[in-house]
Amino acid sequence: MAVKSDAEITFSQELLDHMETWREKPGNLIMILHKVQEEFGFIPREAAKKVAKIMNVPLAKIYGVITFYHYFKLNKPGKYNIQVCMGTACYLKGGEDILNELESVLGIGVNQVTTDGQFSIEAVRCVGACGLAPVLIVGEDVFGKLTKDRLPEILAKYQEK
């Protein structure tokens, strides 16, 4: 792997300000990592290193935290990250079939990205719309009461963009 210097990754002013606001607060690490992920969509290695340096915490500690919590992503998701609900209500109403179908249509598994970088799949827990089960989310759009045959039409919406 090529050696990259820390200088290669730039943090927005907003992120730097956020880190300053949280600097003195005890237990700030998770709140900072959330903001990093908000900015990059995942937590790039260089970003973790930069946080370690600015906040003066060991990189190992940062990785300990990132790997413990499922919410933090170590790899870049697709342009459209498709979240399939695997909560109980969705599971009972066929969420697993939706997930399997999606995997076979896109040719990738959970937490993988299509080669064109367009889509990734994530299995999530209840998203709080159980009345609409089974549910799938793309970005801000929620698709409820899903059936397998609606998947191509949903994917097509994003493919063109």
């Binding site: 998770i30 709140m31 959330h34 413990f68 499922h70 827990r125």
Partner: peptide, 8 residues
């Protein structure tokens, strides 16, 4: 203060 969980 609000503290965010992270999916555990």
């Amino acid at each position: 203060e609000i503290r965010l969980g992270a999916g555990a």
